[in-house]
């Protein structure tokens, strides 16, 4: 486990080191260079830290089980739900896409039976649609429901 954490940690660090090398060669560079140097120096400091055995303590929280290992399946399902929103929001509109997002996310997190989160999601999605477009004057696409007076 510690090895895995170290591996991913190295990856994270590598990406911070790559950042300065992508500094563009034209235009104002002083500040980006300073940031780049800062990132490289801290990543080195972290390596030293890690070599001495000070690994990072994962953050604690109300709903976090500190002893649990990372549940990749759930994260993937959540990513899928979110991707669905990104793809669907323009063609199908916010109400439908958000229903999919909420339903999918809650289901991935363990809400059963499947229709309950979908129902809650639909209520939430339509409420926010009406609230945002009617009360707050902000744009949200209504999709095929375009033309329904209180949604657009």
């Amino acid at each position: 486990m510690g090895l895995l954490a170290l591996g991913v940690f190295t990856l994270v660090d590598a990406s911070t080191i790559v950042a300065p090398s992508s500094v563009n060669t034209v235009g104002p560079q002083a500040f980006p260079y300073a940031v780049g140097v800062l990132l490289v120096l801290t990543s080195l400091a972290l390596f030293v830290d890690l070599a001495r055995g000070h690994g990072g303590a994962a953050e604690e929280g109300e709903d976090v089980d500190p002893s649990a290992t990372t549940d990749w399946a759930t994260v993937l399902k959540l990513t899928g739900s979110f991707a669905a929103l990104v793809v669907l929001v323009e063609p199908l509109g916010w109400p439908i896409a958000a229903t999919v997002l909420f339903g999918g996310a809650a289901w991935s997190l363990g809400a059963r039976p499947w229709w309950r989160p979908v129902l809650v999601g639909a209520v939430l999605a339509f409420t926010t649609q009406v609230l945002f477009t009617q009360l707050l004057d902000l744009y949200l696409p209504a999709g095929p429901l375009e033309g329904v007076s209180f949604l657009g």
Binding site: D63, F82, L85, V86, W94, F102, A105, G110
Partner: peptide, 27 residues
């Protein structure tokens, strides 16, 4: 229930960012 809570957080996070500029890139 926690599944609903965090699904709700995700939904509102998406709503907030999308309503800034109505662009899927932001999402």
């Amino acid at each position: 229930p926690r599944p609903y809570l965090y699904a709700g957080i995700l939904t509102f996070a998406a709503l907030g960012s999308y309503s800034v500029g109505a662009s899927t890139e932001d999402l």
